[in-house]
Simulated scan of single mutants.
Amino acid sequence: MTTTVDLVPGWVTTRDVIAATYGCGTFQGIEPADAAGKVFVYSDPSAGEEYGYTFDGRAEDDEFGPLYLYTGAGANGDQKPSGRNGSLLSHVEKGREVHLFVAHGRLPGSGAMRQRYIGQMVLDPVKPYDVRRGPGKDGVMRDVLVFRFRPAEGTTPAWTEADRMPAAAQTAFEIVDPAVAVAQPVVLPEQSGAKVKKTEQHSTVETMADIPAGQRKVLRREGELVKAFVAHLAAAGHETHSFQITIKGEPGALTPDLYDATDHALYEAKGQTTRANVRMAIGQLADYRRHIPGRKDLLRVVVLLPSEPTEDVKDLLGEEYVELVWQTEDGGFAGWPLAYNQP
Results as ranks from 00 to 15, higher is better:
123 L>R: 01
41 V>K: 01
122 V>E: 00
181 A>C: 05
16 D>N: 06
272 Q>S: 13
155 T>C: 10
74 G>D: 00
149 F>R: 02
174 E>H: 15
287 D>P: 05
244 Q>E: 01
265 A>S: 05
193 G>P: 02
173 F>N: 02
85 N>L: 04
28 Q>F: 13
183 A>C: 14
65 G>V: 11
200 E>R: 11
158 A>T: 08
51 Y>D: 13
288 Y>V: 09
278 V>E: 01
8 V>I: 15
114 R>C: 07
215 Q>I: 04
301 V>T: 15
126 V>K: 03
248 K>T: 05
289 R>C: 13
189 P>W: 01
130 D>T: 02
34 D>L: 10
132 R>H: 12
278 V>F: 00
237 G>W: 02
293 P>L: 09
268 E>W: 04
49 E>R: 13
143 D>I: 00
160 T>R: 13
208 M>T: 08
7 L>V: 05
309 P>I: 10
236 A>Y: 08
215 Q>Y: 06
267 Y>A: 04
176 V>I: 14
308 E>F: 03
35 A>H: 10
279 R>K: 14
343 P>N: 05
166 P>L: 14
192 S>F: 00
341 N>E: 15
326 W>Y: 15
340 Y>D: 13
215 Q>F: 02
95 G>T: 07
137 K>L: 11
88 L>K: 00
15 R>A: 15
337 P>F: 10
31 E>M: 14
161 E>F: 06
120 Q>C: 02
88 L>R: 00
128 P>W: 04
121 M>P: 00
154 G>H: 07
169 A>C: 04
197 K>Y: 08
301 V>S: 14
49 E>Y: 04
216 R>E: 02
190 E>Q: 07
83 G>K: 06
14 T>C: 08
285 L>Q: 11
151 P>I: 05
249 G>L: 01
123 L>Y: 02
56 D>Q: 01
22 Y>D: 03
78 D>M: 02
283 G>I: 14
154 G>W: 10
11 W>Y: 12
313 V>W: 07
306 P>G: 11
333 F>E: 11
259 Y>G: 06
321 Y>D: 15
291 H>M: 04
312 D>L: 09
291 H>N: 03
206 E>V: 11
40 F>P: 08
24 C>H: 08
139 G>H: 03
137 K>G: 15
324 L>N: 13
250 E>A: 12
178 P>L: 07
9 P>Q: 08
207 T>L: 00
271 G>F: 03
242 S>V: 03
324 L>S: 08
90 S>E: 12
166 P>E: 07
149 F>L: 05
143 D>L: 01
238 H>N: 10
310 T>H: 09
263 D>S: 11
21 T>R: 15
132 R>N: 01
49 E>H: 05
235 A>L: 07
40 F>Q: 08
80 K>Q: 13
121 M>N: 00
181 A>Q: 12
148 R>V: 12
78 D>T: 04
340 Y>A: 09
76 N>E: 14
138 D>I: 07
10 G>E: 05
170 Q>Y: 09
192 S>L: 06
166 P>D: 10
318 G>A: 10
